[in-house]
Nucleic acid binder design. Structure first.
Lengths: 164, 164
DNA sequence: CCTTAACTTCACAAATTTCTGAAGGAAGCG
DNA sequence: CGCTTCCTTCAGAAATTTGTGAAGTTAAGG
């Protein structure tokens, strides 16, 4: 028999990790990055080493490496070198990843570029051109408003969780 | 030599369609749905038949069928039966697709469920539990705020484009 | 400076996804 | 009521993606 209400029972943690990762996968995140991210989110310190990730998720060092590269690229995790060691720690910063979520910005920007080009090439005075122009307008509106939304969140958060 | 500034020059249209579709693909949309959607967006009436789509994109009827099913499922296009014909028209409604974009709701809901479960199973008083709880809080906040954002867009839009 | 630990890169095998051609319905039209 | 048109479904070929083992790179520690 295990302890009554085991804290950090590996199986309980694993169940959450896999379940949450599955949701991310369904939203379009590649499997390995999703699992690594979920594992970090469920860790006590918010950091794990490559070795810990590999062991916990039963994946090769290569898979960890690939997943972390992906996550770092989209700013969902940061990498830290432990001073005086070859070990690296990967960390999920709450603030950081909220921002990343709304930072589809780069993507939106390219959508906007493509739309602008479309308006020009199809003609701003054609029905199709007008449709594209309005769509472009929508994105520009959203983009601007999302910034405000994040501001409101930070305010709300500080009040509730007590600032920095 | 073709006309000076040809309206709806197929090649010009095609260039936009493929370029915009490529951006969607990069954002995670499957290729065929992306191309079909872009083609509809660039059409003058905002509607195309299955045959027109197949010809314009050089894809089989089966591919059109699959793409449309996908797009309809995520509410990016609607299907209309031409009365007295076996032909179907597929349409992109501007309003409709803006809403769909922000309607990651179903997905977010499941994320929230998974997070709630995590808070409970890992313990609300553990560091990991607290992290999950704050994340959950963020999503709940956003979800609520996005509704407001869409409201502001509709207001802005009516003013600019002159209402329904 | 040599050894060794830790991560990364690369080539390939396996699994998954994507698109097609062909066969199978539904619905207008005679 | 049968013919025809248009769409869908399905099995499978082709392409893409994913994860691994093995070799390579960097830097700590003796």
């Amino acid at each position: 028999m295990t302890e009554p209400t085991t804290r950090r029972d590996p199986e309980t943690v694993s169940r959450f990790v896999e379940h949450f990762a599955a949701q991310l996968v369904e939203a379009g995140v590649p499997r390995m990055p999703a699992r690594v991210f979920a594992a970090l989110l469920a860790s006590d310190t918010g950091t794990l080493t490559s070795a810990e990730l590999g062991e916990q998720l039963r994946i090769s060092p290569a898979a960890v490496s690939g997943a972390v590269r992906y996550l770092a690229q989209v700013h969902l995790v940061s990498r830290e070198r432990e001073p005086g060691s070859r070990r690296e720690r990967y960390r999920v910063h709450s603030d950081q990843w909220y921002e990343a979520l709304t930072n589809r910005e780069a993507i939106i920007k390219r959508w906007e570029d493509a739309l602008r080009e479309g308006v020009t090439s199809l003609g701003a005075d054609t029905p199709a051109g007008r449709r594209l122009a309005e769509t472009l307008d929508f994105f520009e509106f959203i983009e601007q408003d999302v910034a405000g939304m994040m501001g409101r969140w930070r305010t709300y958060r500080e009040q509730k969780y007590g600032g920095a």
